[in-house]
Design a binder for these strands. Structure first.
Lengths: 214, 214, 214, 214
DNA sequence: AGATAAGCGAGACGGTACGTCACGTCTTCAC
DNA sequence: GTGAAGACGTGACGTACCGTCTCGCTTATCT
């Protein structure tokens, strides 16, 4: 099954004193990127999203919280979307693809895993924002497409396994099935209706796999 | 005493009325809403999205193009998303939901209708923008949720009819089915993969309705 | 056609001020320049120069102090120089041109008046800044030239009167004399050596008028 | 898992050494100042002012053009003004102060020399910049004051020689006279009115030395 | 001869201010 | 009372330099 424990590791060490006095700010460590700065920026971005939501997220706010200069952020990330993408990437997702032996079981596990990840860690907010940005920014759109394609292949495994073991019909299009699966969770996320009710999820999995016919 | 100030007088004067242009603007038609204004605003909004894409769309730009005051726009629409939703709605044909006699036929008709609409008219861009905006703006999110809920009911009809005529199993959740259907087209739209191939769409409809099992 | 408008009823009341700070800020007074705002900006600019000197002067600081928006300032003044020029103009100079009966007396009165004005009111700082800006900005340069030309004529009066009453030689170039006079005070101002010692000023006036010869 | 991050890898890589260009840069010549570096910096500064004018001048630009590090520049010059003053010094010919035998002749030579120098070599722009910078920066002000004091002494020589040889009155204040002389040329430079007409200069010299009286 | 010390390039860093854009609210004035 | 007009405060945008820092390299000089 899923393991959520690793999702909280980085959250524990978040509350820094942020002492303003004695000029303890980060400094350059030479003509190369300072990993502390990168960390501080990513953590600040993550924290802002977690605490204030997507609306409160801005380069300005991240810079202030991370005690970093705006130009430093712009030097390493071309814009807020790029930064958010990195934040999303840092949040290691729970393993949502497990082999339960049946396609319906796998689909249910996927649904539960994804919604749990999005709901618990704030990763959902980040992903929503990335999707939103991808609608106006071409670079973000490209990144999102690449990411979606990768996930499509992963989720497709569920169905390819089902076909291989004869559980699913041979003419099932695993890509389409993966799109249907992803679409369901995307749409729920984007309309703010993350589903945690297990019965509902089981029903959804059932309908998607067994079909609707009498 | 002479001063520097007069050197900047022309700057101030540039902000004078300047309304010598025959004054052919729309005016109030009394203590009631002017339908011409509403039309002009919606058309301007539509044109801007069509010509400049999502990025160029702003209340400011719409007001300017429609020769309307910003408060006039805000009086009727709480924000840019609401305006865009209306624009989207204006474009939406009624032909998406038809009763073909079978659920699979209805679903296929829906898929074909939606993708054709989005692909042909630029309505897809408008809707993408609405979804995107809903991820950052609460009002927009509410609008989108309300809109999605309404569409959910409409699409749900397909499945309720199927249940009523005994075509679908009695325990089918029509809302969930509608979400799956909507999710598929949303996800395709948001990742820039509008599907026009009829075989693909037929396959998708088949898998969604008949299921995947062997 | 559907109407979503009713969906926004409750949304309208969401945009509450949220301003617990009594919200006593200036507001627009319609589609015309608000004199209060202009006053507030000019006064803020003046105060900043007086209290923190030229170095502390920035559009950013003025906006903050005047509780005005930066775009508002940029709307009415093309840059910091233009704003400073207006500030300088507001500071009505002491009357530095008086007819004492002799050229030397007039020159001395001018020297005393100018240095007093610059030293007491902070006008000197403003003028220094204007001169500085004129060296890098063409618009400022033009303004300064125009101002200098005007003052040249005014100061030239001292010498023209002297020629008229036969006190000065007929071939004296009043413009040149005015330049020498202005140059002396400019150079002192720009090197931070405003002269208040009356004996020194008297000596300067004497040397400029009577010459240096034995 | 695939990530968005690799889409930004190239950005980071762009900040890699990149010093494959045959490595022809200047290097340290041991624990002592490299005269080549100083030369390169001064020449770069000079070239920038000459080509792009005052506005384009910045430590950043000089460092880049000279292929020098910013700290190297700051090590020898406290700021951009100091650097510019050195540039100005480099350009200054020794021919401004000559002993023509009479004070009026010396003054005229000075005027002609200064204006010729400023007009021909672009040195005027450099000096204008120094004066401007001194109005906002304390270090610059100090540099300018020191420089002006030195020149004051040099120019004062003209008048001290005059007093010594009995040509000038014994009570003439040579410092004041030098200020008047300097002020005249400064004011002309700063208002963009470099005087090249010899008659005008002769008249100015005459008025400054012999006085204005009938 | 090896260690030491400084010069030097490079460029990252926290900052400050720049000038711009769009937001949503407000008031005036013409109809 | 409707509508056009546009000024206003706000907040974020992305950019330009500032002056400081640390690194890694190089070379002369001093043990």
């Amino acid at each position: 099954m899923l393991s959520f424990q690793n999702l909280f590791i980085h959250i524990v060490q978040m509350n820094e004193p942020a002492a303003i006095d004695s000029d303890d700010r980060r400094r350059s460590i030479g003509a190369r990127r300072n990993p502390e700065t990168e960390q501080a920026i990513l953590e600040a971005a993550e924290a802002i999203v977690a605490e204030q939501g997507i609306a409160g997220f801005s380069i300005e706010a991240v810079a202030k919280r991370a005690r970093a200069g705006k130009p430093t952020i712009y030097k390493w990330w071309p814009g807020k979307t790029a930064l958010l993408l990195d934040v999303y990437h840092r949040q290691k997702p729970a393993s949502v693809h497990t082999d339960t032996g049946t396609v319906e079981g796998d689909v249910l596990a996927f649904l539960k895993g994804v919604f749990a990840h999005w709901g618990n860690t704030g990763a959902g907010d980040v992903f929503r924002f990335v999707v939103a940005e991808a609608q106006r920014d071409d670079a973000a759109a490209q990144s999102l497409r690449a990411y979606a394609a990768e996930r499509r292949i992963q989720s497709g495994d569920i169905f390819r396994r089902g076909i291989a073991r004869g559980e699913l019909a041979a003419d099932v299009d695993d890509g389409l099935a993966a799109d249907v699966l992803a679409g369901f969770v995307w749409q729920r996320l984007l309309t703010g209706r993350i589903e945690r009710d297990e019965q509902q999820l089981a029903q959804a999995a059932k309908q998607m796999v067994r079909g609707l016919l009498a």
